[in-house]
Every structure is written in structure tokens, then in C-alpha cells.
């Protein structure tokens, strides 16, 4: 239990995908200008990232690893699986729940080929890329907790950032910094703040 908690914390805060690892920057800056779109995007990311990681975990453990081709084939295979999965989910949601489709609809295709989703999927089956100093197996439970941690970390940061940007929008800042430049400065400062979590619980 404690291990799972530490894995979650490591993914959620200490190795935050947006502010520490700087993966998935395009939705981070592109969708964070308005609060409600950032919430829609977050929900879609949590949803897709979790499912994609689970599917990729299955593909790795049942297909790629036993056949000994995983080491060099995992990226194309995962991209294939994630893209197909998102398409499939989109169709199912459209049929089953039009309300959910309206809420997530435009965000689903956006994250089909998002690097954050691929990174989460890769990392949940092949830990080491991010060098968590945690002993962490390839178990399904751990992979699930890990992915949810990353997805929630992504959501927390993007929602927090959207709230900040809405305030910056009306703040008296120099004309030349308006828009994306001030967003980058804010992102850098937030990233510095997140560095403070490093070493928490000795992770």
C-alpha cells in the first residue's frame, strides 16, 4: 500500500509530467487559456491515458515481451494501439452517451497522438526512462496507479495554469509579453516551484 502511494506521489508531484518532465507542452500551452476548456481536456486526458496505458501494458506483456521484440518495437506498437483505441472509444461514446461525447468530443482526437499519453504508456511498462529512484515492477496494479498519478498531475497543472492565465489576461503586463511569452514565464516559475517537491519522502 505504501509503495503504491509513493508511486502515485512520484508520478503526481515529484516527476510531474508537465512541469518537471516537460512532456505534452502543446496542450499545456494551447488549451490552458480558458478554464472550462482546460477542465474538458483534463477529463479526456485522465480517461484516455488510463485506458491507453492499460492496453499498452497488455500488448507489452502478452505480445511484445514474450516474443522478444519489445525493446525496439514498443514505440510504433504503442502508437498503433493508442490511436486505434482512441478511435474506438470515440465511436463507442458517440453511440452510448451523447452527453459525454459533447463534453469530451473535440478533445479526444486531439490527444490521439499526444506525447504525454505515449510517455505515460511507455513508462508504465518500461520504467527507468524517468529514473524514479523507486523499485517498481511491471505489475498491472502499479502501472495503473502510476498512470492515474501522471494523468491527475497533468490535470492539476493544466487547470491551475488556466486559472492563472485567466488572471494574467487582465493583469497590467508589458504589451510585448502578452499572450504566450508571459505563459512561458509563468510555466518556468511554476516549474521552479515544483522542483521543491524533489526529495519528498526520499523519492
Amino acid at each position: 500500500m505504501q509503495r503504491l502511494f509513493l508511486i502515485f506521489l512520484a508520478a503526481f508531484l515529484i516527476n510531474n509530467i508537465l512541469l518537471i518532465k516537460f512532456i505534452g507542452l502543446c496542450p499545456f500551452l494551447g488549451v490552458s487559456s480558458r478554464f472550462d476548456t482546460s477542465i474538458g481536456m483534463s477529463m479526456a486526458v485522465i480517461f484516455v491515458m488510463t485506458l491507453a496505458s492499460m492496453a499498452c501494458w497488455g500488448v507489452w506483456n502478452l505480445l511484445l515481451d514474450p516474443l522478444g521484440v519489445g525493446d525496439f518495437l514498443y514505440i510504433p506498437a504503442f502508437i498503433l494501439v493508442i490511436a486505434a483505441l482512441v478511435q474506438f472509444i470515440e465511436m463507442v461514446i458517440k453511440k452510448v452517451s451523447p452527453t459525454l461525447f459533447k463534453a469530451l468530443g473535440i478533445f479526444l482526437p486531439l490527444i490521439t497522438t499526444n506525447c504525454a499519453v505515449l510517455a505515460a504508456a511507455t513508462e508504465s511498462v518500461k520504467p527507468g526512462f524517468w529514473k524514479l529512484s523507486l523499485e517498481y515492477n511491471y505489475g498491472l496494479g502499479e502501472a495503473l496507479v502510476y498512470t492515474i498519478g501522471i494523468a491527475l498531475g497533468f490535470s492539476m497543472v493544466i487547470i491551475m495554469f488556466a486559472a492563472m492565465r485567466e488572471r494574467i489576461e487582465i493583469a497590467p503586463i508589458p504589451h510585448s509579453l502578452k499572450g504566450i511569452p508571459i505563459a512561458f514565464i509563468a510555466a518556468g516559475l511554476s516549474s521552479l516551484a515544483f522542483l521543491g517537491f524533489k526529495g519528498l519522502f526520499g523519492i
Binding site: V59, L63, L64, L67, G68, V69, F72, L73, P76, A77, L80, V81, A84, Q87, F88, M91, V92, K94, K95, V96
Partner: peptide, 26 residues
């Protein structure tokens, strides 16, 4: 082996999507 695995996965997923698009057609 790699080509077969990737190609096979692609074919299976493609077929699944084709079936799904019929079943879940709105």
C-alpha cells in the same frame, strides 16, 4: 518477426475498427 507482429496488430485493429464503425454507427 517484427514486421509480422506490427502488421498483424495493425490488421487486427483495423478490422476491429471497421466492425466497430458498423456497430456503433450513429
Amino acid at each position: 518477426k517484427a514486421a509480422l507482429i506490427l502488421g498483424g496488430t495493425g490488421l487486427v485493429l483495423g478490422a476491429l475498427l471497421a466492425v466497430a464503425s458498423k456497430i456503433f454507427y450513429v
